[in-house]
């Protein structure tokens, strides 16, 4: 089951670059939330703050509070345990090239010392089915390497890898930006199915995609959250002029 995310006064920097300024929002549990905005406005930085990946960059800094399931991830927890509960899918597929498909999916569990063969097999199968990749790879799970798949298959493999550790929150940073329409719609179907079990945050440049999969949408501009509301409201009757300009294509 997913959990809700409360973000309060979140500020983030890359060196002297104040990338995120005073972000406040509540992301509901077991729903998909889309983040839109022009390139460089800080969407990736924002999702990276939700699993404490931002601070892995030596020049990065972050202040404010992020509560996931009521627990402040910056005050009450260590990065490693947060990242085990908050899965992430990156903009560019990054499977492990030296591992088989099976080992790619099982990587998160094996890393944490989970060794029960039978249960591993089940988890791998379930995750690959959830990410709509199972039928394409079931015959050479252990023969083919993660790098031998196509770009779209690799991205679905990365989704399976993130799902295998059964996270409470799934962060997806433009998961379909490098994919063809068929793979894209597979991933959208997937998000649609998964959102009943997980809290999903998806960054996208594709407005139709946001409209199709997400209940809530947030609009970022220059490091600020301009508007956060139900997707329907954002796309039909935004309260901020800048949001309207962006979704009607007048800038960005």
């Amino acid at each position: 089951m997913g959990v809700s995310i409360e973000v309060q006064n979140l500020n983030a920097w890359y060196g002297a670059n104040h990338t995120l300024q005073d972000i406040n929002l509540n992301i509901p549990a077991n729903h998909a939330t889309a983040l839109i905005g022009p390139s460089g406005c800080g969407k990736s930085t924002f999702v990276r703050c939700l699993n404490r990946m931002h601070e892995t960059n030596p020049i990065a800094r972050v202040t404010g509070s992020v509560k996931i399931g009521g627990r402040d991830i910056y005050e009450d927890a260590k990065p490693v345990e947060i990242r085990r509960r908050v899965g992430m899918v990156f903009q560019r597929p990054n499977p492990f090239p030296t591992m088989s498909i099976y080992d790619n999916v099982a990587a998160g569990l094996k890393l944490n010392g989970f060794r029960k063969r039978h249960e591993l097999d089940e988890v791998v199968e379930k995750s690959l089915k959830n990410s709509a990749l199972w039928d394409e790879v079931k015959d050479d799970l252990k023969k083919k390497s993660g790098a031998s798949l196509s770009g779209g298959q690799q991205q679905r493999l990365c989704i399976a890898r993130a799902l295998a550790v059964d996270p409470e929150v799934l962060l997806m940073d433009e998961p379909a930006s490098a994919l063809d329409p068929v793979s894209t719609s597979k991933i959208e179907d997937l998000i649609f199915q998964l959102k009943s079990q997980y809290t999903i945050v998806i960054v996208t440049h594709n407005m139709q995609q946001a409209a199709r999969v997400a209940e809530k949408t947030g609009f970022f501009l220059n490091g600020r959250m301009v508007e956060f509301d139900s997707t329907h409201k954002i796309f039909t009757n935004p309260s901020d002029k800048r949001t309207e300009d962006y979704i009607t294509g007048r800038f960005g």
């Binding site: 990242r83 085990r84 899965g87 990156f90 499977p95 492990f96 591992m99 890393l111 890898r161 550790v165």
Partner: peptide, 27 residues
């Protein structure tokens, strides 16, 4: 070894040593 490999392992909840072992040395 590309930086994305390190991030991939870290995002799974790896410690620094696990990240180096799986994300870097293995590659």
């Amino acid at each position: 070894v590309p930086h994305s490999q390190r991030e991939a392992v870290l995002a799974l909840g790896a410690t620094r040593w696990e990240m180096i072992r799986t994300g870097v040395l293995r590659n």
